[in-house]
Amino acid sequence: MSKSIADLEEIARKCRVEIVKMVHRAQAGHPGGSLSEIDLITALYATRMRIRPEQPDWDDRDRFILSKGHASPGMYAVLAEMGFISHEDLKSYRVLGGVCQGHVDMKWCPGVDFSAGSLGMGLSFGMGCATAARLDSSERRAFVMIGDGEMQEGSVWEAAMAAAHHELGNLKVILDRNRIQNDDFCEEQMRMFDIPAKWKAFGWNVKEINGHDMTEVMEGLDFLEAPENCNGPSILIAHTIKGAGISYMENNPSFHGAAPNDEQFHQAMVELGEVEA
């Protein structure tokens, strides 16, 4: 069943509600990066991923690797929307024994393909998945979401170089370019200069989009899947806003890894249309 832009926007809105609820309930976690990535992950799962939620370990599924694994509430919300886990499971975020571990964990949560949480690892893992798919002569793909701050890890560039060398056309990266990292704005922590040029120079197909405009997001995913871009690895550079959708979190480095208080939580629910003002 194909989803309209409005359908996708509504799913993303519901996921935003769940993200804020998770971090508020846990009084910990990473709302900013979850809110910046959520439109992208929603569209990817709802319209592109070849998956079977009732059979999460299906061998021939597409893989999705959330390399910025701390932004787990976003992924958990989408997994719940897709039916991999229940909405009740979302209450286990950061709770002892919970399906929803602090960082996404393949040993704990159905539908999670890689245990992330340490930055700079997911792209390499995705390269392994893509290499295996090629050896299997399978058409399955590996989608990897990385963060912009994450690109400061040298291992990202080991993987970028290797994936292009091996012409892994089934490896697709989405960069959540939200411009904020743990301590501050990326521009203050470590300037990264011309990011599209860097990836092009490493031999990747590159496209830039607004990561919150669902029409552009769909065009971006079309780009990743286009046959002419399957000659090698491709990256979608999605310009996003950290904390997108909650006014006081937007572009605010404080909400990289902090939970809203009760008053802020209420305001967020109002802004997301969940409750009356």
Partner: peptide, 26 residues
């Protein structure tokens, strides 16, 4: 050669390419 993956001089990448392949049945 078809089952040998050159990771260049990149040990960090190599370990996790291995992890991705192990998770894919190799």
């Amino acid at each position: 050669p078809e089952r040998t993956v050159s990771c260049g001089i990149g040990e960090q990448n190599m370990l996790l390419v291995g992890a991705g392949m192990a998770a894919s049945g190799y």
